[in-house]
Simulated assay, not measured.
Amino acid sequence: MATTSRQEQKATTRAAILRIASDEFDLHGYAATSVARVAENLQMTKGSVYFHFASKALLAAEVVRVSFDVWDPLVRSVDDHALSGLDAVRRLLVDLAQRYTDDASLRAALRLMREESPVRDRLPEALGVWAGVLRRYLDQAVGAGQLRPGTDVDALARHLVALFLGLQEITQRAPTDGSLAEQVEDAWETTLVGLVRTH
């Protein structure tokens, strides 16, 4: 029983560190974030943080790794609503945009991967995961005859990921142009119209 309690406490502390570190990386980036400030915000010692994460680089890497899990609840929601094909892709991208707006850990992960940091080389891996999720539903769209014949679904999946990241960057720099979810909706209507098969 005591061992289980210690394990639960360790997991709780680790999650709290990741939450605060995500806030710091999101707001300040890798270079300006310090383990000391993370510890101070948690009312812990630096040594306690280093017990869980041996370096700031490892802490940042875990923030990025955990962000890959963002798709699990989004995919479950799509499947629970029995969406498939292009309807599923649209829902995934809009929900991802909302998640980005609400979730500092996802914003932190994307910032860490696009700026100079020890985890920048994780970007191709992350984008591969994202494109793989979208490819699943784009394949359904092909099977359902929703896309024009000859559509390269691999290229389209990568394009949609790049489109999302570009819109995210634009929204960061010009927030008055609307929320990221709104930008994604607009892009869906304008960018993909040429790919959808007409009957």
Rank of each mutant, 00 (worst) to 15 (best):
Q168Y: 15
D154F: 12
T33K: 10
S105G: 08
D87M: 05
V70Q: 04
K56P: 02
S67R: 03
L134T: 01
G143I: 08
R114Q: 15
R148C: 08
G143V: 03
L58R: 13
I17H: 07
V161T: 08
A97Y: 09
V94S: 02
V94Y: 06
P73A: 11
W188M: 04
Q146P: 04
L58I: 14
E185V: 15
L96D: 00
V35L: 13
A2H: 12
V70S: 02
L92D: 00
L106F: 11
M113Q: 07
E182T: 07
R148N: 06
Q168I: 01
E182R: 13
T3Y: 14
S5V: 11
A187L: 10
L163G: 03
S34N: 12
V184S: 01
T151D: 04
L156F: 10
G150C: 07
R99A: 12
R76C: 09
V119H: 05
T33C: 09
T33Y: 13
A157R: 02
S5H: 06
P124A: 05
G29L: 15
A32T: 08
V133P: 00
S48V: 11
R107Q: 13
R65A: 14
Y100F: 12
S77W: 09
D79C: 06
T190R: 11
T191L: 12
Y30N: 01
G132D: 04
D87V: 00
R90S: 08
A126D: 06
L18E: 04
A155P: 03
A108E: 01
D23G: 05
F68Y: 14
A82S: 11
R90A: 04
L106R: 02
S55N: 04
R120W: 07
R14K: 15
V184P: 00
L163D: 05
R114W: 15
L93M: 15
M113N: 04
L127M: 07
R111H: 10
Q146T: 03
P118G: 05
K46W: 05
S67L: 10
S55Y: 09
G85D: 03
L74T: 03
V94N: 02
Q43E: 13
I17G: 00
I170P: 00
L59E: 00
R148H: 12
T4Q: 14
G145V: 11
Q9K: 15
A21M: 13
Y30P: 02
L74V: 05
D26K: 08
S55R: 08
Q168R: 14
S5Y: 08
H52K: 11
A131Q: 04
A11V: 09
V161C: 08
V70G: 00
A155R: 12
F25M: 13
L59D: 01
G194A: 12
L160F: 05
A82E: 14
A187N: 05
E62R: 11
S117G: 04
V119M: 06
L123I: 05
F68M: 14
D26I: 00
A15N: 15
A108W: 08
Q9C: 09
